[in-house]
C-alpha cells in the first residue's frame, strides 16, 4: 500500500484584482495517509479539493512538503504523476481526444510504443470495463456515466499506485453514481476520494472532515460522518 505524507503544508492563493492580495486555502496541515480508502468530506469551498490536488502536484504548497511513497511532489512531479492517477468531477474536461479509443491510447503512450499496438492495448482496456462497443464513438456522444467510466478507464490503464478522485459522482445520476462508487471502492489501489456522498464516505477506511481550510475531524468513518451531520445542523 502507498503512503501519502503532508508535512506542515500551507496553501495560499493570490487573488489579483481582489480586495485582498491573497487568501489562505489550506491552513497548516500535517497528515500521514496509509489506509487503503480515504474519504475527504466537507462543504463546498472548504479546501478538500485543494487537499486532493496536492497529492499529484496540481496544487503546490506555499510552504511545507507533500511526499508520496518517499517522492517529494514538488521535486519529483513527473514520477509522482505516473504513480498517482486523478479523476475529476467533470469527465468532459478530462477526455481530450476525439474518439474513445484514442483517449485511452493517449494514456498508454509511455507503456506501449507503436500506433497500432497502442490502439490494440487501448481496446483491451476498454473491453475490461465493458466499453469495447464504444471504442470508435466520438467522446462527445457518450452519456455522463459512460464518460466518467471512460475517464476512469483512461486513468487506470496505466495502473497507478494511488487514485485521487475529486467528487467523481457529483454530476452523475443515482444509478451511475452507484456504479462508479462501487468501482472505486473495489479497486486494489490506494484511493483518496473527495466526495459529498456520505454513504460512499462511510464505506471508506478513514474519513477526514475539512472545513474552512482546516482538517477539523479525522478518524473512523461513522464517527467523522456523524460529527459532520451534527455540525451541518
Amino acid at each position: 500500500m502507498s503512503r501519502i505524507e503532508l508535512d506542515r503544508v500551507v496553501v495560499r492563493a493570490a487573488t489579483p484584482g481582489g480586495p485582498v492580495p491573497e487568501v489562505t486555502v489550506l491552513r497548516e496541515t500535517t497528515l500521514d495517509l496509509t489506509e487503503q480508502r480515504i474519504a475527504l468530506v466537507g462543504p463546498n469551498g472548504s479546501g478538500k479539493s485543494t487537499l486532493a490536488r496536492l497529492v499529484n502536484g496540481l496544487v503546490e504548497p506555499t510552504s511545507g512538503r507533500v511526499v508520496v511513497d518517499g517522492l517529494d511532489v514538488a521535486k519529483k512531479g513527473r514520477e509522482v504523476r505516473r504513480r498517482v492517477g486523478f479523476v475529476f468531477t467533470d469527465p468532459s474536461a478530462q477526455l481530450v481526444m476525439p474518439t474513445v479509443v484514442e483517449d485511452v491510447a493517449l494514456s498508454l503512450r509511455h507503456q506501449v510504443r507503436g500506433r497500432e499496438e497502442r490502439a490494440d492495448a487501448a481496446r483491451g482496456v476498454l473491453a475490461s470495463y465493458g466499453l469495447e462497443e464504444l471504442a470508435d464513438r466520438s467522446v462527445h456522444t457518450l452519456s455522463g456515466g459512460q464518460r466518467q467510466l471512460l475517464a476512469l478507464a483512461g486513468v487506470l490503464a496505466t495502473d497507478p499506485a494511488v487514485l485521487v478522485a475529486d467528487e467523481p459522482t457529483t454530476l452523475l445520476d443515482l444509478r451511475n453514481a452507484r456504479m462508479i462508487g462501487d468501482l472505486l471502492l473495489g479497486l486494489p489501489q490506494q484511493l483518496v476520494l473527495a466526495t459529498h456522498d456520505l454513504d460512499l464516505a462511510l464505506r471508506c477506511d478513514r474519513v477526514l472532515l475539512v472545513d474552512d481550510g482546516t482538517v477539523v475531524a479525522d478518524g473512523a468513518p461513522d464517527e467523522v460522518v456523524a460529527h459532520y451531520r451534527a455540525s451541518a445542523g
Binding site: R12, A13, A14, T15, P16, G17, V20, E22, V23, T24, V25, L26, R27, N44, G45, S46, G47, S49, T50, R53, V59, D212, G213
Partner: peptide, 17 residues
C-alpha cells in the same frame, strides 16, 4: 492577464489571510 500570478482552477476561495 496578470503577468506573474498563478492560474488556478480550484473552486475554493476559502478564508482571507
Amino acid at each position: 492577464a496578470a503577468r506573474r500570478s498563478p492560474a488556478t482552477t480550484t473552486d475554493e476561495p476559502a478564508t482571507q489571510s
